[in-house]
């Protein structure tokens, strides 16, 4: 069990999340990719907290905060997607141009 393995896994998760975030056109898949990113960050925090800060586990406290924010973000993101879907009748990310000038 080494620190590098966890960091590599977290980096791989993060890169997969970025790829899915940018290339997917379904809004729900974008939401899932954001969850992937947050999970990668959480894994990094817990790994560092265990290996480098074993006595005062500050990283786990941060992880709990990140999980909280992720839950709130998922709820608000789902509400936004539902509202857009009801108004525009599509979930295509390319057709969401409400904030364009």
């Amino acid at each position: 069990m080494k620190l590098e393995f966890f960091l590599l896994l977290a980096a791989a998760l993060f890169c997969i999340g970025i790829y899915g975030l940018i290339t997917s056109r379904n809004a729900v898949r974008v939401l899932m990719s954001v969850e992937l990113l947050l999970n990668a960050v959480n894994l990094n925090l817990v790994a560092f907290s265990n290996f480098l800060d074993g006595q005062q586990i500050n990283g786990q406290v941060f992880t709990v905060f990140v999980i909280t924010i992720a839950a709130a973000e998922a709820a608000v993101g789902l509400a936004i997607i539902l509202s857009i879907y009801r108004n525009r009748d599509t979930v295509d990310m390319e057709q969401f141009n409400l904030l364009k000038w």
């Binding site: 069990m1 896994l9 894994l43 817990v46 265990n50 786990q60 992880t63 709990v64 999980i67």
Partner: peptide, 11 residues
């Protein structure tokens, strides 16, 4: 499960 491996049971 990875968190359990990292001694983080609450997380």
């Amino acid at each position: 499960g990875l968190y359990i491996l990292l001694n983080a049971d609450f997380v």
